[in-house]
Design a protein around this nucleic acid. Sequence first.
DNA 1: GTCGGCAGTTTGGTCTGACCATATGGCCTG
DNA 2: CAGGCCATATGGTCAGACCAAACTGCCGAC
Lengths: 248, 248
Amino acid sequence: MSVEWQPVRQSRTHELVLESIEQRVFAGELKAGDRLPPERELAPVLGVSRSALREALRVLETIGVLVAQAGRGPDAGARIVRNPDDALGRLLRLHFALGSYRLEDVLEARVVLERSSFAAAAEHASAEDLDEAEALLVRMQEPSVGVAEFNDLDTRFHVQIARSSGNQLTSTLTSAVRESVRPLILRALEAAEDWPATADGLNVEHAELLRLVRAGQGAEAADLAEKHIRGFHGTLVDEKDEGGEAAG
Amino acid sequence: MSVEWQPVRQSRTHELVLESIEQRVFAGELKAGDRLPPERELAPVLGVSRSALREALRVLETIGVLVAQAGRGPDAGARIVRNPDDALGRLLRLHFALGSYRLEDVLEARVVLERSSFAAAAEHASAEDLDEAEALLVRMQEPSVGVAEFNDLDTRFHVQIARSSGNQLTSTLTSAVRESVRPLILRALEAAEDWPATADGLNVEHAELLRLVRAGQGAEAADLAEKHIRGFHGTLVDEKDEGGEAAG
DNA sequence: GTCGGCAGTTTGGTCTGACCATATGGCCTG
DNA sequence: CAGGCCATATGGTCAGACCAAACTGCCGAC
């Protein structure tokens, strides 16, 4: 048989706890907004120590499924939430830093996701969403804006378009992927020979992108977005060429 | 200013520890394969208790950046690794179960990612990778294959194509997104009125997809992949219509 | 009677120290 | 020299205490 043997790796306690809670989520018994029992009650019920339970809760918190709040009242305790964005962002950022992904791979992923975002935004975006995006562009056009803030606004513009596409998942993925290369982009912007010209060029493209989205020209917006992203990543590859190959 | 005030939310100890370790990763001081000092040494150095340190390590383990192994020898201890796939899979699976994402959103994401996978595979896939994909298809064609195993092989086929595209990131994302709807697809397959006919139809499409990839016809493969996925997800929407809307 | 503050209670966060489980390294015996 | 047993290093778990945050509600001052 072609199936390889796998090491059995016996489960640790906190993993069993995690499974138990996950099962409740999959079964629909735990929904967003629900509260878990207090740690001091739940631990003995599950037959584990509080520390083991806490490690499981920490895992759930890490993936944006749970938040904990001390104190009393309706907002206190451990609550089920839906906040995948931070979790995905941290995950991709760290793995990109570790060399799990090559820059070209990130580039392709961005192109694919953002083409979809811009095309969908041209279809579904509300005027308010696009107004917010425009506000970001206006702030980017101020000559006094610094590189760091420009980078921040740039990220938020792309994320705002993704969000306005109405697709939560591609929005989250777009945001996370963009976040993962944020430090790299910041370094590239800082190293730009003629910063005002660079900023101008990006501003022009952003404005045109937003115009196409507003006009409902999804296909054209997608094409320009691809050009926009590829053009910019081109400069990144140049910046990073001393990095060498990521080892297997 | 349009920037909203944010609650300051003072950092918890384990978050500070996490930041400290993350910084080392971003700075390149911690690379894949490196070992962390033993918990009992590292905790006092960081000025925190072992439990707080362990919670931080658990977070890193959750996102696939660290594995821990008890015992002695070169493989023991906490080591930096690059294993994002499980982490991303769990994240999307749980969030999909919680209703963070609508089924249509997942469908669009799959279409976008897998179009790219198939197109890139037609360009870059090695013969061995495609042989492995073919072996999966052969096993899916056996009449005796059960629904669960078919679902498993189907997943692995799509993931194998993604992997053979040479893009680690889209491969991971494809795998995770496919995993997140795996239970749903399983239920749909189980509910199929004429299972052999359903399986046959999918098998034919898979074979044609692989043929196009082998022939290097990336554009055609992408189009067929989109049709393949949309067609199948259509049956899923029908299956899930009792689910109602996901609350905001 | 109302407002403000103070104490009580609930809940997560952290710390300490102990003990258990696992896996290697090396000694010791046959 | 081979096999088994013990020492050691390391993560995993546990128990109990105390700290910190945040709401509840009482109680006194006005």
